[in-house]
Write a protein that binds this DNA or RNA. Structure first.
Lengths: 109, 109
DNA sequence: TTAATATATGAACATGTATTCATATATCTG
DNA sequence: CAGATATATGAATACATGTTCATATATTAA
C-alpha cells in the first residue's frame, strides 16, 4: 500500500514491510563514519583487522566489532590465513552504493 | 590517508573527514524504516503531511519530526499552499540512492 | 607446553534517536 | 474576531548504538 502502482520498482516487485526493514538495515551499515572508512579501506584491496585499525587510528577491538556488523550484513566476507583474518568486500554493490551517496554529497547536496 | 590513491573517486577528489561525516549523515537519513516509507510516498508525487501520515498509519506529529530531518538533509523540499505544506523530493539522487540499495537487498544481498 | 600474536566477544557506559503527548504557530472560514 | 484545520516543536520516554576495557579463543613459534 505504501508504494504506488506507478513507480518503476514496485512494478518489478512490490516493496513489502520486510523489504523496507532490510533496506533500512542496509543503509544503517553505511550510516556510521567508522564503517564507511573501513569499507573505503577495502576498496583498493583486502585487509586484515590490524591494518584497518592502524589505518583508521583505532583499536582492533573497535574495528572488530564493526567488521562483525558488516559481515552480518553481508557487506564483507572473510578468509583466514594463519592467525590473521582477511576482510574483503562481499560484492561490487557495496562500492556502488558508496559512490552513489558520494556523488550526492559532493555535488553540494 | 584513508582512501588509497588508486580508487576512482579519490582520484577525482580525495575524501576528507568532513566528507565521510556528510556521507554518514546522508545514509543515516535512509537508515530508518519510517523515513524510507516517507520517501517512497514522495516518489510518485508530492504530498502533504496529513496524507503521508494517513498512508503510513502514523501521527502527523511523528511524520513532521521525520520530515524536518529529511528537509535539513536536503532530501526533500517544501511548498506552502494555504494551510497545507507540500513536501516533494529535492532531486533525482534520492530515488537513485534508494533504488541502488533496493537492488542490493532484492538480489538476495 | 609456554609465550606471543591476531582476532573476537561480553559487559558497561555514554550518547543518539524515534515516537508520544502537550502545546504552539499559522492559515482559513464564518 | 472566534473556531477549526494543518503543521511544527519541545520535553519526556524508551530503545538502539559505538567505544572501551577486560577477557576469551585461535594460531604460530620456540
Amino acid at each position: 500500500m505504501i508504494p504506488s502502482k506507478n513507480t518503476k520498482f514496485s512494478l518489478a516487485s512490490p516493496i513489502t514491510q520486510t523489504t523496507f526493514c532490510d533496506l533500512a538495515d542496509l543503509f544503517k551499515l553505511f550510516s556510521d563514519n567508522t564503517r564507511l572508512r573501513i569499507l573505503c579501506c577495502l576498496f583498493p584491496k583486502e585487509q586484515c583487522v590490524k591494518n584497518i585499525a592502524a589505518a583508521l587510528h583505532m583499536t582492533p577491538s573497535a574495528i572488530s566489532h564493526q567488521l562483525r556488523l558488516l559481515k552480518q550484513g553481508k557487506l564483507v566476507k572473510t578468509q583466514r590465513i594463519g592467525q590473521t583474518i582477511i576482510y574483503s568486500l562481499a560484492d561490487e554493490h557495496v562500492q556502488s552504493i558508496f559512490n552513489q551517496g558520494l556523488n550526492h554529497v559532493q555535488e553540494g547536496k
